[in-house]
Design a protein around this nucleic acid. Structure first.
Length: 890
DNA sequence: CCCTTGACTTGGATTAATCTTC
DNA sequence: GAAGATTAATCCAAGTCAAGGG
């Protein structure tokens, strides 16, 4: 307490950390340092001041006011009664409970639908098919866990970071360490390096102890017992079997029928289990019985969904639907619920596809503001002005400090100006008039009344309505990005060689449309222009694409939204594959451990790389061109990115995806440590650490170990496993808020493992000091209350404005005191959380790495409304996971 | 094999919407 | 009731990985 009040923020944070134990403490510290680093890197030359000096327009803003009416309608629901929302709202969310078509991989399994049925039909069929295959011996829940093998190594990492050692303080990501030790790969584990292990900390905080349960660990408390059961449970997994299987399989490409079938069988197995019990009622429903009582939510929701769809369909759309139906599908798109068009037949992704193409940004409207060149106004053509404006508007971004950005911009702009233009160099350009105009426009927009804004919004919605939906196999689905990207200056991340280049406007004749054969060709909204090409390719899911103006080798695609069944299905398959890895991981670890000492250098490198991917959740690391930012992943690590610290630690430091810095120091098995030294020997700092390796070799090898296995599966496995494990271990009885806290802690842990960072908000520091102040103030109040209490008890009048306090009784004072204390406590917690998460991005893992079924099942088990964890988009995206059994185990 | 093309997932930053607070 | 903070939605860049062609 006190620390917080009297100290500056740093201290405060430390305090907080203590709460969690030493580990945390460390982490925080490191974190903050990290931030500094990051920011430095990112900003490059400019420091904050840059912003302040100029007008720092706060772009954010918004309309602060909303019309009460509208708002009120929505907000209440959202907030308190989650359930109501789902049922009541017409939004897509409502469908989350419905069984979505997506969800049934089985359909694909059955596979034989030679003939493309319409969606609903297929669905029905599918549904019945449930029975089937149970090939895999094991039930999932049990077998999966083998003793310790299945834990993600990363979870167990230990990071030790000594801050001190580094001169520069950046310690970085301390991911958490893992616990105890154990993480090692099977055999290794036995021998494991005990020495270091424990490290001073193993705090028991939750973070680490992943599965080690059976072993000593006791932190777990009551839950541990339970867990143990689960974990050790059985499992004798057919690893052997599988492995042999695999080996025999030669190329398991998914497309390969045989291998895919195999995978699917596995899926089926899981699925069947899940399906079997659907009796459980969705949690949200249970809790909120207020809303509909009793019945199964799914049926209800289904209805709702139907309604909604009908409502939203535009006339045009309906027409199309009709037409389409004629051509084959009879299902009512609005109603279909479960089916999956899936991949039963080979590569086919859909049978019928109807959509309206894409919408273009409005043409450029010249504003006529003249920029200055050597102090004098310059006339620009609309085209020239447009590009000048793109640049002017970026005056207060960090890009302005980057020479590369400016030179690339200049180079492209100059082409528009022409060699002989008055403007001969960028240095003498003053874009202020344009910048100021822009700020004014922005302000105007901000000042518009609520009504005006609303009207504008509706207008836009109306124009976009027809582009928002597609009908896939008779089911109306949301389109993800139907807006063509507007022209602008390329904003590459990190030190991207092409930053600042003009990203030209895309026209209809740049765009290729993909649509069903029987569907009407979308009309091109720009008069006089036409699409580049029309295709009818049902082996792909994109609706349209154009080539990237910055890098013509790349394409920009228009896909369905995440809530679509097509996306949902592949999402589910992704998680099923990761779950499958759980059954193979023991053998995989044993295999690579053995290869740590292989004489075959390639094997050895593959082994070490696989180990790093498994333990640290590193990305595969494809090769990159020179015209891209220089970042690396596992296979592309350079010698200089890894520093060996005797006796057995490796310090990693490199720029990963999006030029996000990965900093971590971790203890490794001695053979790995030695192997790294060997790979580094005789090489220069910039040379490839794994010179015999690339992602295709690595993945080819992984595929021999498990069908469909690739490097990225480890990340998914790691993340989901960690979540499941931490939730199982750390969830305690308590109120919903506490449980959510547990969830967030697990989520945070995963984010740290995956190195999902975010930049610290500009106002973070200010916010922290404000909180600190506020706490101090409350503390003052508290003191006064205590004094008064003492006086009142003795029959004296309270100090200060006694007349106002005259009526206070001791009881009332005591109550106030405790309220104030509670308030202070809460503030402290909030502050700690804020500091703790200032550089951690929780969203990415939630969206991409955590099997939603883990979350849904946990919510069901612990009566936490799912809406507390998943927002509207996530609920829609994970519709396929909503009916999971509460006992689901990843 | 190696290299390129193609398609789809992952990711941080921005912007917009909503909620909190004073 | 507006400023400030938080959260959700959007945007689009940057990865992964399969497949095709030579």
């Amino acid at each position: 307490m006190m620390a917080a009040e009297d100290s500056d923020k740093l201290n405060v944070s430390d305090d907080f950390d203590d709460e969690d134990g030493p580990v945390v403490f460390k982490r925080t510290n490191t974190t903050s340092k990290k931030n500094q680093l990051l920011s430095e890197v990112k900003k490059s030359t400019s420091s904050l001041d840059g912003q302040t000096q100029r007008k720092t327009p706060d772009m954010s803003s918004s309309n602060g006011q909303n019309s009460g009416v509208q708002k009120s309608k929505i907000s209440p629901a959202t907030k308190t009664l989650p359930i109501d929302i789902s049922t009541a709202s017409t939004s897509p969310v409502s469908s989350f409970n419905v069984k979505s078509p997506v969800a049934n991989p089985k359909a694909s399994l059955s596979g034989d639908k030679s003939k493309p049925l319409s969606g609903s039909k297929v669905l029905n069929d599918v549904k019945e098919e449930k029975p089937s295959v149970k090939q895999l011996p094991k039930e999932n829940s049990k077998d999966s866990d083998d003793e310790e093998d299945d834990k993600p190594l990363s979870a167990r990492l230990k990071m030790n970071s000594n801050h001190n050692s580094k001169a520069a303080p950046i310690v970085k990501k301390p991911v958490e360490d893992s616990d105890d030790d154990d993480d090692l790969p099977l055999s290794a584990r036995l021998s494991r390096n005990s020495g270091t292990s424990g490290s001073g900390y193993d705090h028991s905080d939750q973070k680490k102890p992943l599965l080690k349960v059976h072993k000593s660990h006791q932190e777990g408390s009551s839950t541990s017992v339970k867990q143990e059961k689960l974990v050790t449970g059985s499992v004798k997994r057919p690893l052997d079997k599988t492995s042999s299987l695999n080996s025999s399989v030669k190329k398991p490409k998914l497309s390969d029928p045989a291998s895919s079938a195999k995978i699917k069988q596995v899926f089926v197995k899981h699925e069947s289990k899940v399906d079997d019990d659907d009796d459980h009622i969705p949690i949200s429903q249970r809790l909120a019985k207020s809303s509909a009582s009793g019945n199964k939510s799914s049926s209800m929701k289904k209805i709702e969904k139907g309604v909604k769809v009908n409502k939203s369909g535009s006339a045009l759309f309906k027409k199309q639907v009709k037409k389409m139906k004629k051509s084959g599908s009879k299902s009512e798109y609005s109603k279909s619920t479960k089916l999956l068009p899936s991949a039963g037949d080979g590569q086919k992704k859909w049978t019928t596809l109807v959509h309206n193409g894409v919408i273009f940004p409005p043409p450029y409207k010249p504003h006529g503001r003249k920029m200055l060149y050597k102090g004098k106004p310059v006339d620009l053509t609309p085209e020239q002005e447009e590009v000048a404006t793109m640049f002017a508007v970026m005056q207060d971004t960090d890009y302005m400090q980057k020479e590369k950005f400016k030179s690339n911009f200049w180079s492209d702009w100059r082409k528009l100006l022409g060699k002989n233009h008055v403007i001969q160099n960028l240095e003498d350009c003053d874009f202020t008039p344009i910048y100021d105009w822009f700020q004014v426009e922005k302000e105007k927009k901000k000042q518009m009344s609520t009504e005006e804004k609303k009207a504008l919004k509706e207008e836009k919605a109306k124009q976009e309505e027809k582009y928002m939906w597609a009908i896939v196999d008779g089911v109306k689905e949301k389109v993800g990005n139907f807006r063509v990207e507007p022209p602008g200056l390329f904003r590459g991340r990190g030190e991207h060689p092409k930053m600042g280049k003009l990203k030209r406007r895309i026209h209809p004749d740049d765009i290729t449309i993909n649509i069903g054969k029987d569907a009407p060709i979308p009309e091109c909204s720009i008069p006089g222009e036409k699409w580049k090409e029309i295709r009818h390719d049902n082996t792909v899911t994109w609706l349209a694409f154009w080539s990237d103006p910055i890098n013509p080798k790349l394409f920009k695609y228009v896909f369905l939204a995440a809530s679509s069944s097509l996306k949902g299905q592949s999402d589910k398959e992704k998680y099923e594959k990761a779950r499958m890895l759980k059954n193979y991981i023991g053998n995989i670890r044993a295999a690579y451990t053995k290869d740590f000492t292989s004489k075959d250098i390639t094997r050895k490198q593959i082994a070490v790389a696989t180990y790093l991917i498994d333990k640290l959740a590193l990305r595969a690391g494809n090769e990159k061109d020179d015209d891209e930012a220089d970042t690396v992943g596992c296979c592309t690590l350079k010698v200089e990115n890894v520093t060996a610290e005797a006796p057995n630690k490796l310090q990693f430091s490199f720029l990963g995806k999006d030029s996000i810095k990965y900093e971590n120091t971790v203890e490794v098995e001695l053979p790995v440590y030695n192997a790294i030294l060997k790979f580094q020997k005789g090489k220069r700092p910039g040379d490839d650490l794994f010179d015999m390796l690339d992602t295709s070799k690595l993945n080819a090898h992984l595929k021999e170990l498990m069908p469909g296995l690739t490097a990225k599966v480890f990340r998914t496995f790691n993340a989901s496993f960690t979540l499941d494990d931490m939730l199982t271990k750390d969830t305690k009885d308590g109120d919903v808020a506490e449980k959510i806290g547990t969830y967030q802690a697990a989520n945070k842990q995963v984010a740290i493992i995956c190195n999902h960072q975010r930049s610290v908000s500009k106002s973070h520091t200010a916010q922290m000091s404000k909180l600190t102040e506020k706490i101090a103030e409350l503390q003052g109040v508290l003191k006064e209350l205590k004094t008064d209490l003492g006086r009142v008890k003795k029959g004296k009048a309270p100090l200060k404005s006694p007349e106002r306090k005259r009526n206070l009784t001791p009881d009332a004072l005591e109550k106030k005191i405790s309220q104030t204390n509670a308030k202070i406590e809460k503030m402290r917690r909030d502050m700690k959380t804020k500091e703790d998460l200032k550089t951690v991005a929780l969203g990415t893992s939630k969206i991409n790495y955590l099997d939603p079924r883990i979350t849904v099942a946990w919510c069901k088990r612990h009566e936490v409304p799912i809406e507390k964890i998943f927002n509207k988009s996530l609920l829609a995206k994970f519709a396929w996971a909503m009916d999971v059994d509460p006992d689901f185990k990843f």
